[in-house]
């Protein structure tokens, strides 16, 4: 059970917190200690809005053991509005309704349950933008 990892990553999992380089303005997610563009270490936390479009997706039928009970489920690559791409599960949508280029928004969902007595771990997933 990787409780320390989930605790450590809470700002990423719940708030999409990455980094902004104070020297060149480059944004990164996941957060990095060294700016990929200008190699500066002068970076501060930056929260992404969680809005994006779908770059690619897959439905996983054979899953790693921890996710075995949840299969099949969908995972996508999402291009965030701020120009950064991230990996996340897709939720609240059926495989036939998913298309590359569709608009998505971040939501907090259960990532997995560590057995009947273990903790439930939460984090970001993406769903189609709700229309009102």
């Amino acid at each position: 059970m990787d409780i320390p990892r989930y605790w450590r990553l809470k700002n990423q999992r719940y708030r999409l917190q990455g980094k902004k380089c104070l020297d060149c303005g480059n944004l990164s997610f996941p957060p990095r200690l060294v700016c990929r563009k200008c190699k500066s270490r002068n970076c501060e936390p930056y929260e992404f809005k969680g809005m994006g479009t779908l770059y690619s997706y897959t439905t996983i039928f054979q899953a790693p053991d921890r996710f075995d009970q949840m299969a099949p489920y969908m995972v996508g690559l999402i291009d965030l509005e701020e120009g950064v791409r991230i990996t996340a599960q897709l939720t609240d949508v059926l495989p036939d309704d998913v298309q590359i280029g569709m608009k998505l928004e971040m939501v907090i969902r259960q990532i997995y349950e560590d057995g009947p007595k273990g903790p439930i771990l939460y984090g970001y997933k993406f769903r189609p933008v709700l229309k009102f």
Binding site: D2, Q62, P64, Q89, I100
Partner: peptide, 26 residues
């Protein structure tokens, strides 16, 4: 793959390659 940001999302190694293949087909 990246343990903190790819695999803990439920992405398998086959899944990573599937993301590439889907985009290639598109």
């Amino acid at each position: 793959a990246d343990a903190d940001y790819e695999t803990t999302m439920g992405l398998s190694f086959v899944g990573i390659n599937a993301l590439l293949m889907r985009r290639y087909l598109y």
